[in-house]
Each structure stands twice: as C-alpha cells, then as structure tokens.
C-alpha cells in the first residue's frame, strides 16, 4: 500500500473540516431517527434521504479490538491496536485506543483529540476508569 495515509477526499470535505475542529460529525435520519455513519447519504433503515448532521458526544464502548503484530504497510509500526468503537449514538467506527494496547469488549471510552495529524490520526479513544464516563454535564 503506497497510497497516502492521511487521504482527505473532496466529497467529504465538511466531515474533514469537522475533524479539524475536533468534531466527529454523524448523520441522523429525520424520518426514522436512526443515527448512521458519517458518510451515509441516505438511510439504510427506511431509505429516506432526509438526513441531518449531528455531532458525536465522544462517548462510547469498545465493540472489539485487535493488536496488529504484523505491518501490512510501511505506515505502521507493530504492535499497534485498532478498535471498533460503538459510539453512544449508535454507529460503530474504526479508531485507536490510547495508552497502550490493551482494551476489552464493553470498556467505556471517551474521545481524545490530538493536534498533530502528521504524527497519527487525530481521533482516538481512552478507556474510562471503573467509575464510568467522566461526563461534565
């Protein structure tokens, strides 16, 4: 794989601008209310194309998790973890878990934004302690 790692496509420029503001923008169906992946263009539940954008809270749970011990491209240095995060709004996204390479299915996590896209992805998640989410509301 020699393609650029931090590829930003033109079609989803609004999404990537959101990422630059440390916001993960999701799509929500105005008709049936289901929350969908950021790149959804219509609702896969009710087929409505009336979608609105919403900002993810940044809270979620680890849906699954792997640690790569083999590099499939020169961009990665194993070992590194990749997680499937179930956002509290519903969609699951691929991301990383900060602070080492151990996580478990069901762990509560919160978003951590970094400012250096050349060093790595800007969004990752950290496991929240047993007291639960450190929500400030």
């Amino acid at each position: 794989m020699t393609e650029e790692r931090f590829f930003r496509d033109e079609q989803n420029i609004a999404f990537w601008e959101g990422v630059a503001r440390n916001e993960l923008r999701l799509k929500k169906c105005s008709v049936c209310g289901v929350v969908l992946a950021p790149g959804a263009t219509f609702c896969s539940e009710c087929w409505s194309s009336e979608l609105t954008e919403m900002k993810a809270s940044g809270y979620g749970k680890v849906h699954s998790f792997v640690v790569y011990h083999r590099a499939f491209s020169e961009n990665e240095t194993p070992p590194y973890g990749v997680a499937l995060i179930a956002l509290e709004e519903g969609p699951r996204i691929v991301s990383a878990v900060t602070g080492g390479v151990t996580a478990h299915v069901g762990d509560d996590v919160e978003a951590v934004w970094s400012v250096a896209p050349t060093e790595g992805p800007t969004l990752s998640f950290s496991v929240v302690n047993e007291a639960g989410w450190k929500r400030e509301d």
């Binding site: 393609e3 790692r5 496509d9 989803n12 999404f15 792997v66 499939f72 996204i93 691929v94 992805p121």
Partner: peptide
Amino acid sequence: ALTNIPGWERQYGLYGAVGAYGFAMRR
C-alpha cells in the same frame, strides 16, 4: 470501510481480513 468516508480506516492501520476476523474473534 465502515464510515463510508474514504481514508478514515486507513489512518488507523486496519487492514483486511485479519482485522475483520480478529474483531470477530475477540468479540
């Protein structure tokens, strides 16, 4: 690709079959 945003998954170094089936195995 899960997000339908080209480039998103690649940032994290998630590659193909071993990643997807590794997720299934862990879960």
